[in-house]
Design a protein around this nucleic acid. Structure first.
Length: 527
DNA sequence: ACGGGAGTTGTTGTA
DNA sequence: GTACAACAACTCCCG
């Protein structure tokens, strides 16, 4: 009997999964058996952006999917193997006729793997049916047509989970690839504090909790790590693995908006909800926008979007700076607290991610590739397209975004005025009073004694003078951008990748009149 | 969705 | 009531 494969990649769910439905139809019609596969790929394990927390999260979500499949008469094979090798064996033993999967947008190794699979399929006469994922449009030339294509995609009807899935074939030879314990593959488990529950139904619970309850003050609460951990959606780890489809999140948010508007008619207070959901929707759109960049620029993680600018500001990997930054021992309390929360939980809110990257790039002048890899490994929700786009923006290497150099002390005072967040994550500072918590190095000897925090022994002195170093970094960046070659390249980057939303001008349409984005002034381009 | 300085407008307290 | 300093709040600009 011939066999078709449903290849689960970063789409570990049963609902709103067109390739799965298509596979069930196709296999059912021709009386073939259907084999659900998921791979832990050896090539993937070699990548520098892969970490133990990703793999454990992924395996747990895959196991949750397996349980759901078993409930419907099938199961999931979780294989430690190169997909091509497995397909080859299936072709030889059970007459593989078709593959069904979503399109994947990843870094080079997955791109090359997909090319190899495609080539093999052509040669062997196997049909590979690929369905687009979330808002990413394959083979897109420029950005002009993107937004409408993405919105169309988000409006497609959501499919239910299939009730019954054809029983899988017996293929004992697959057992040779059954996935061993990850620690034997060199990835010993690193337990995370407050790790989310894996799987599709947990993802749905988190979404419901956000839309019903937690999201009300989202717009105002997301910027601070204190309030953000509760009021942000916390969907990213699920979206990264496709436990939920982005389309479902968009559509459920729209439904909730409708409901809130009718509640408003009844006189209920929806003051905070509606602006919050509107911010949330715009972030869901940015999610797709940034993934699209990697789709169109598969080497986004190794080559800066504007290589001319990048080449004009070489940043050396100074070991002690990198060490201090990456472990949360810079001597800047707020930054250290953020980095330590990230280590412990695999999560930090978006604004603080930007700060971590920006301080590494401007104030510490560290190379984005290494700092970006470090963060990639720490984010439980690592999504390559979003991550490397953000790394580019926060390191000033795109040329199309305004330079945003965050100040740790200012952010600390703005987001954590009393220092409660700092004390929670940096116990060395537990007894430092609010007046000194953001700049403990300014305490005199007596104050250091009183707060049991001697600078230089209990807690490090700051790596560099922040004010001075930050300014230097920013002006070096502007100098690199001013170069005519760099500007020319920025114009090209904008043509290909820039958001067509335009700068967010605050009223006053007079005077300067309609000045279209001008390539000679890259500073005008906003994302 | 940067930060800091300069300039502008608005508010309050005092003589 | 008026004049004005002191200061907060906003806007604009530049690196």
């Amino acid at each position: 009997m011939a066999t078709e494969v449903i290849w689960f990649k970063r789409d570990l769910r049963l609902r709103d999964h067109p390739p799965l439905l298509q596979a069930i139809d196709s296999a059912g019609l021709s009386g073939q058996s259907l084999l659900p596969l998921f791979f832990v790929e050896p090539e993937r394990l070699k990548q520098p952006d892969t970490s133990e927390i990703h793999l454990h999260w992924e395996l747990d979500c895959a196991r949750a999917l397996d349980r759901e499949l078993q409930r419907r008469g099938s199961r999931l094979w979780i294989l430690h193997a190169d997909p091509l090798e497995v397909f080859q064996l299936l072709h030889e033993t059970v007459e593989l006729t078709a593959l069904h999967s979503h399109e994947e947008t990843g870094t080079d190794w997955s791109f090359q793997r997909d090319r190899a699979v495609q080539k093999w399929c052509r040669k062997m006469g196997v049909d590979w049916h690929e369905t687009p994922s979330n808002g990413v449009v394959r083979r897109l030339k420029g950005r002009d047509a993107w937004k409408s294509a993405r919105d169309r995609r988000m409006r497609q009807v959501l499919a239910d989970a299939p009730e019954l899935i054809p029983a899988p074939p017996e293929i004992p030879s697959l057992d040779q690839w059954s996935c061993p314990d990850l620690s034997s593959l060199g990835f010993p488990e690193r337990p995370l504090r407050d790790r989310p529950d894996p799987g599709e139904s947990s993802a749905q619970d988190v979404l419901n909790g956000f839309l019903e309850e937690r999201g009300e003050p989202y717009r105002y609460a997301m910027s601070s790590p204190l309030s953000g951990s509760y009021h942000c959606s916390r969907l990213a780890p699920y979206l990264a693995l496709g436990c939920l489809s982005l389309r479902r999140v968009v559509q459920q948010t729209q439904q909730r908006e409708k409901q809130l508007k009718s509640l408003r008619q009844e006189g209920r207070d929806t003051q905070r909800w509606l602006p919050s959901l509107s911010s949330f929707k715009s972030r869901l759109a940015w999610h797709c926008h940034f993934m699209q960049k990697l789709e169109m620029e598969p080497d986004l993680d190794v080559v800066a979007q504007n290589p001319v600018i990048d080449a004009r500001m070489p940043r050396p990997l100074v070991e002690d700076k990198f060490q201090a930054w990456s472990t949360g021992n810079t001597g800047w309390p707020f930054l250290d607290a953020c980095m330590r929360q990230l280590h412990a939980t695999g999560w930090i809110n978006f604004r603080m991610r930007a700060m971590l990257m920006s301080v590494a790039s401007y104030t510490l002048w560290l190379p984005w590739r290494e700092t970006g890899l470090h963060l990639a490994r720490l984010f439980l929700d690592y999504e390559p397209g979003i991550h490397w786009s953000q790394v580019g923006m926060q390191s000033g290497t795109t040329g199309i975004n305004t330079v945003r150099a965050y100040s740790v002390t200012k952010q600390g005072r703005d987001q954590d005025p009393e220092g409660d967040y700092i004390r929670r994550w940096v116990p060395e500072l537990a007894r430092v009073p609010a007046e000194s918590i953001h700049e403990p190095w300014k305490m005199d000897k007596a104050e250091q004694e009183r707060s049991q925090c001697r600078i230089g022994s209990d807690y490090p002195a700051p790596l560099v003078d922040e004010g001075k170093a930050r300014k230097e970094g920013v002006s070096k960046t502007y100098a690199a951008r001013r170069d005519p070659e760099a500007r020319k390249k920025s114009q090209e980057v904008f043509q290909k990748h820039g958001s067509r939303k335009g700068p967010t001008r605050r009223r006053k349409p007079a005077q300067k009149s309609s000045q279209a984005p001008d390539a000679d002034q890259p500073g005008l381009f906003q994302e």
